[in-house]
Amino acid sequence: MRELLYRLKDRYHLGTPTFQRDDLTFVTVKRDELRAILTELRDVEGFTHLTFLTAVDWIEEGLFQLTYMINNREANQSLGLRVMLTREDEPGATTGDTIHDLWPTAATYQRELNEMFGINFPGSPRVDEEFILEGWTDLPPYRRDFDTLAYSQQTYRERPGRGRSDPKAHMQETLYPDYPKPREAAHAHKEEAK
């Protein structure tokens, strides 16, 4: 893998690679060089299998990270290519480059990223069609600034008849109702001492 990265480094701008395991390496590449690198790795270097494509939201740094995991099945090597995109708050304003022509299955991943992270991939087939969500108008839900707790509190109501209790106190009341509660026991002990 080191030799391959040395070869690529002659022609492309690569970040410092992370050699996670003998068979797994991560490296950051520039967005405008991604397609050329992916094409070369697929057609020349044997990385023919796109394992997955996903995103990580680094909201504090104002970045989206796209991770393209590709695999060379013959050499049993996986390479994770990271592409950092400027994070725009407006859903769909951040765009990535579609690779559905290299791997048709990438269209599904890109459709999901558009829906869940608001990262658009212009030109990708059916990228604007609903994938998992239906009639969703809120923030893309996998973004870090989407608050799942607030959403569920606003959307759903408490089911009547359901209460909350401290698990420890509940178990004690259920299993050992005659046993004094810890605070009461401590109080009784103090009284006895007096």
Partner: peptide
């Protein structure tokens, strides 16, 4: 068409 079982597991795990 999928989505009938979506519970946002990956998001839930982050919390």
């Amino acid at each position: 068409h999928v989505g009938y079982l979506h519970r946002g597991f990956e998001k839930l795990m982050e919390r």
